[in-house]
Design a protein around this nucleic acid. Structure first.
Length: 136
DNA sequence: ACTGAGCGC
């Protein structure tokens, strides 16, 4: 249950463990991979249930702000949910409230984790709207 | 088959 969710917890729980003031590395450990991303209107939500859909995700986050766009990532071939998704608010304030309101909360029986999403992979000139069919 | 770390077509 909660133990299983704690195992599935990504970097979101690292700030919780920071209460122990553990210092396994010198003070230069903040140069390799910063846990949180830059504040943006895009939210990365992990720990979702397999049964959680885009509507459920939007409805859950709509309580803390107007959700402009929401999407549960599903596998392209199988069509099943991958267990995480993205939520985009209109403003940074709503995004902050969405994180503080939904991070560590329950959704469909699973503890979810909300944080700022990283910028997606840059678009390619080839991928102009579809798969590269007939590319030499 | 969907099993549980993670970043979207």
């Amino acid at each position: 249950m909660a133990v299983r969710a704690a195992v599935a917890a990504p970097r979101g729980l690292r700030r919780l463990f920071s209460s122990f003031a553990f210092s396994p590395l010198p003070s230069n450990a903040a140069n390799t991979a910063p846990p949180p991303a830059e504040p943006s209107t895009n939210l990365f939500v992990s720990g979702l249930s397999k049964r959680t859909t885009t509507e459920g995700l939007r409805d859950a986050f709509a309580k803390f702000g107007q959700v402009v766009n929401a999407r549960v990532v599903t596998d392209r071939v199988s069509g099943y949910s991958k267990g995480f998704g993205f939520v985009r608010y209109g403003t940074l304030e709503e995004a902050s409230e969405g994180i503080k309101g939904m991070d560590g909360k329950f959704l469909d029986g699973w503890v979810i984790f909300a944080e700022y999403a990283r910028p997606r992979e840059p678009p390619s000139e080839n991928a102009a709207g579809g798969p590269p069919y007939g590319r030499p």
